[in-house]
Design a protein around this nucleic acid. Structure first.
Lengths: 245, 245
DNA sequence: CGATCAGTTGAGAATGGTCAAATTCGGTGG
DNA sequence: CCACCGAATTTGACCATTCTCAACTGATCG
């Protein structure tokens, strides 16, 4: 157990959306965030699990997914440091999806009671949380568009660009690329493709001089053309600073 | 302009998630919900539009979608009576998607200021709104899984079952079927298919004795087998009554 | 030094797309 | 009531993207 400070991951996350008052910050500071560690492949949250708690990722990558009866998996989103994860699983009685560690993970727990408590005492926090949730939803929507209406190469380009943009926001990547711990199976399950086809699309993108993915490193060889291919627009990721002052 | 009563659509919507106190109800009652009418094809909200307001659908069907640069459209979700629509467009500076009327629509407007105001004075309302948003997100997630990992026939079966289940909750359908104003183009754009293929999949489902869609009427001929085909699980739609008492 | 996992590659098959044309249906105006 | 218009649906031929299956390579790890 450790006491969160004003610089806790949760505070940083929510400050991006709303300017928090001192009361807000004090309420946040009272949250007790138990620090937890997970290993690659560990399940942080299991679909159907009752009373799951939420987490804020401090280090590592996770993936949220759903399984189908026939054993197929659809990855809904990847989580990177500073991401809020499992919010829906505390709002619903049981978790509606699973979350698994892709790498070793450090995360701090956020109890459901803390969230509800914050709502009662610090309304701006409520707005901020709603905001964070809405931004997550927007990312799922963009993912839906990606899978529904783009070709394999375009989907891949879009996913890599999105991950790059998100990682840049938290200082884990730059215009040239980022370290990527995902396997081609992860990419396939996220993009609604087979692993075999992912493997044929990646060399294709590399040969065209657009992106390279090897040895866990994504390199943007020509981001402009890659964006054009993917129809990538960052608008849905822009944080633009707090809206409520 | 009309004053909302305790039986307003918004009140009914939020009561499903949280037991509202008298203060909550009074706050809601102070909302001024301007009643608006739209005709088929009208845009209720346009992607990029600043300061859009939210709406609660009282009558008719709408569809939220995104356009791609090449003119393709991906429908993200359909909205039916009692659905909250455009919540994200009031939280973000500009709307991140468009919403169009599929039929003639009656809706009451919800101003952004009303929402934020409610958060400050009635914390339970904030929780309820967060809840409603999360349930919407869960539907988008299920849609993503549908498109990412199911065949055309399975997708169609799943979509029709979901619409049926949602319409049943608001008394607009029963186990035998429902009235459906959507065209095959709508279905195609929602399912990530071509209209031609939609047209080949529908007779297939009918011939197998599962569902029939004609003349704007969906008839479930064998819901059990249809559910099995679609891998349809209602869990994500269950409201289960208010969680916070 | 097997064993396992990630990545590659190739052949053949299938699902679903595109293009183009015909047909049905619901109005609408004469 | 009927002719006509546009929209929605239906059909067929052909094509492309992506899948499945299967085998093989290479790295990593106990």
């Amino acid at each position: 157990m450790m006491l969160m400070t004003k610089d806790s991951p949760l505070t940083r996350k929510l400050s991006a959306f709303v300017t928090l008052s001192d009361v807000d910050l004090e309420t946040l500071a009272r949250f007790h965030g138990r620090r937890r560690t997970f290993l690659p492949g560990d399940e942080l949250i299991h679909e159907g699990q009752p009373n799951a708690s939420a987490l804020i990722l401090a280090e590592g990558w996770a993936l949220s997914y759903k399984m189908l009866p026939d054993g197929e998996r659809q990855i809904v989103d990847f989580q990177i440091p500073d991401d809020f994860l499992g919010l829906r699983s505390i709002l619903f009685r049981t978790a509606d999806h699973s979350i698994e560690a892709a790498t070793r993970i450090e995360a701090s727990e956020v109890l459901a009671s803390d969230i509800f408590d914050a709502f009662a005492h610090a309304p701006r926090l409520a707005t901020a949380v709603l905001w964070a949730a809405s931004r997550d939803e927007e990312m799922v929507v963009e993912h839906l568009v990606n899978i529904g209406r783009r070709t394999a190469a375009e989907r891949m380009a879009h996913l890599l660009l999105e991950l790059g943009a998100r990682l840049m926001l938290v200082g884990l990547g730059d215009k040239t690329g980022f370290a990527c711990p995902l396997t081609q199976y992860h990419l396939a399950d996220a993009l609604g493709l087979s692993a075999v086809h992912v493997n044929s699309v990646l060399p294709h993108l590399r040969d065209r001089g657009l992106v390279t993915l090897q040895k866990g490193q994504v390199t943007f060889d020509d981001m402009d053309r890659l964006r054009e291919l993917a129809g990538f627009n960052t608008a849905y990721l822009d944080q633009d600073g707090p809206l409520l002052r």
